[in-house]
C-alpha cells in the first residue's frame, strides 16, 4: 500500500498508467473575451416630468441569427432602479446574478432604512466595468441605468470601457444613431424634462422602438417597457412619504406598423426598377 495520503483512493499508476494531466493546463496564455457572442441591441430611455421610461426589445442574437426571442434585457435592481443592457447577454446575466443580486440582498438584509438607489447602483456598475476593462477582461455591455433618485428622475449610461455620461434622453447601440435624435426633438436638454408628460414620453419611446425595428436588422417587434415614477404615500404615522413605483409592460407588440415605405425599395438602394 502507498503510504502517501494524497494517493489514497486514486487509480493506481501501475494498473491504469500515469494520469494524463495535459488538459489541466493550457499551453496557451489565458484568453479573455475579445468579442461578444449572444447579443442584445438597443436600449432606449427618456426622462419626463416625474419619472423615466425605458425600453428594450426581447431579442438575443447569435451573429445574424435571431437566437432567443424571449430575453428580458430590462431588470429591476433594488427598489428605485431599472438597469437596461445592450451587448453580450451572458455578461449581462453575470452582472445581475453574480454582482447585483447579491449586492441588493446584502443591502436589504441590513434592514436599516438605507437602500441603494439609481445613482449608487450606477456608480457601482461603472466601477465594475472600468475595472474589468483595465484588466483587459471587459464585460461587453452598454448599460442604461434609470431610476428615481434624490427627488429627481435619474438616467445615465456606462459601457464596456467604463465610459460614463448622463443626459435626459439616452440610447445604446443603433439607438444612439436612430433614437436619440428623435428623442432630442422633444427633449433637447434637462430644462425640457419638466414639460414632458408621462404619456408623451412613453409615446416617444414607443415610436423609437418602431423606427429601430424598421431599420435595425438585429431587432424584434416584441419588447418590454418600464416606467419609473414617484408617488406620495401616507405612512401609518400619517406622514407623507415618497415611494418609487415601477410599472412594467412586458411582451408588448409594436403597434401601428407601416411598411408602406418598403414597397418602393428595390435591391440594396441603387436599383430603381
Amino acid at each position: 500500500m502507498n503510504h502517501f495520503p494524497e494517493a489514497w483512493g486514486r487509480p493506481r499508476n501501475d494498473v491504469y498508467g500515469v494520469y494524463d494531466a495535459s488538459h489541466l493546463q493550457s499551453s496557451m496564455p489565458n484568453q479573455h473575451t475579445q468579442s461578444p457572442i449572444v447579443t442584445g441591441t438597443s436600449v432606449v430611455a427618456l426622462k419626463f416630468n416625474g419619472g423615466v421610461v425605458i425600453a428594450a426589445d426581447n431579442l438575443a442574437s447569435y451573429g445574424s441569427l435571431a437566437r432567443f426571442t424571449d430575453i428580458e434585457r430590462l431588470k429591476q435592481v433594488g427598489t428605485h432602479t431599472i438597469v437596461g443592457a445592450g451587448g453580450d447577454i451572458s455578461d449581462m446575466q453575470y452582472l445581475h446574478e453574480k454582482l447585483l443580486d447579491p449586492l441588493i440582498i446584502k443591502e436589504e438584509y441590513q434592514n436599516d432604512g438605507h437602500h441603494l438607489r439609481a445613482s449608487h447602483i450606477y456608480r457601482y456598475l461603472s466601477k465594475v466595468l472600468y475595472h474589468r476593462r483595465s484588466k483587459f477582461n471587459p464585460l461587453w455591455n452598454t448599460l442604461l441605468v434609470a431610476g428615481w433618485d434624490d427627488g429627481k428622475p435619474f438616467l445615465a449610461s456606462a459601457d464596456l470601457l467604463g465610459t460614463t455620461f448622463s443626459a435626459p434622453a439616452l440610447s445604446t447601440g443603433y439607438g444612439a444613431q436612430l433614437a436619440v435624435p428623435l428623442l432630442r426633438r422633444i427633449c433637447p436638454d434637462e430644462a425640457a424634462v419638466e414639460n414632458i408628460t408621462r404619456e408623451q414620453a412613453v409615446a416617444a419611446v414607443e415610436e423609437c422602438m418602431k423606427v429601430l425595428f424598421y431599420r435595425d436588422a438585429r431587432s424584434l417587434s416584441k419588447y418590454s417597457l418600464a416606467i419609473i415614477t414617484r408617488e406620495d404615500v401616507e405612512s401609518a404615522e400619517g406622514e407623507t412619504k415618497e415611494r418609487v413605483n415601477i410599472e412594467w409592460k412586458k411582451d408588448i407588440e409594436l403597434q401601428n406598423q407601416s411598411w408602406k415605405f418598403a414597397e418602393g425599395i428595390r435591391g440594396y438602394g441603387a436599383q430603381v426598377v
Binding site: 441590513q110 436599516d112 441603494l116 456608480r123 457601482y124 466601477k127
Partner: peptide, 12 residues
C-alpha cells in the same frame, strides 16, 4: 463614496 457615491450610513 468611491464605490457607491454615497456617504457611508452611520449605523454601517
Amino acid at each position: 463614496r468611491l464605490l457607491y457615491s454615497r456617504p457611508v450610513p452611520i449605523s454601517r
